[in-house]
């Protein structure tokens, strides 16, 4: 089985972490903004874009392996934060600001580095694409 479809397995390993973490995201948003928040606009990026980008990013890692997986993952926020900011502004998500996105970027890089190194790396090992 491990010889077959390595990119599909890499994709599945990549989407696992943000898909599981979506429960934390929804809980956090609910605590921060309440149940009356515009969920249809808020949840689109974390639910649809982020997991798929993680999967594709892990496929690219398994294709090239140009750096340690933590470093590879730490680059992803440099794409995701501007993309998320742009989509949030387009959808008029209320709390998103340039300042907030700029301040969140460094910590997003650190969080992504750790998540990719320890979590995605673990799932890659489990699925035989490490």
């Amino acid at each position: 089985m491990r010889q077959n479809h390595p990119y599909l397995r890499a994709y599945m390993a990549g989407i696992t972490v943000p898909t599981l973490f979506l429960l934390v995201v929804v809980t956090g948003f609910t605590m921060l903004h309440g149940v009356a928040a515009p969920w249809e606009r808020i949840i689109m990026f974390p639910m649809a874009v982020v997991p798929n980008l993680w999967g594709v990013w892990n496929m690219l890692y398994c294709r090239w392996r140009w750096a340690p997986i933590g470093v590879h993952g730490a680059i992803l926020p440099l794409l995701l934060v501007p993309a998320g900011f742009g989509l949030a502004r387009a959808l008029e998500v209320p709390w998103m600001s340039v300042t907030g996105a700029a301040i969140a970027l460094p910590v997003a890089v650190v969080v992504y580095y750790l998540a990719w190194k320890y979590l995605v790396g673990f799932f890659n090992e489990v699925l035989g694409v490490a």
Binding site: P18, F21, V24, V25, G28, F29, L32, H33, I42, F45, P46, V50, P77, L80, V81, G84, A88, V93, W95, M96, G100, A101, I103, A104, P106, V107, A108, V110, V111
Partner: peptide, 17 residues
Amino acid sequence: VWLAVFPETIGVLLYQL
């Protein structure tokens, strides 16, 4: 520590995860 100093970024960070 960063999140404790800038708690308003928690929502922005959650949006990216």
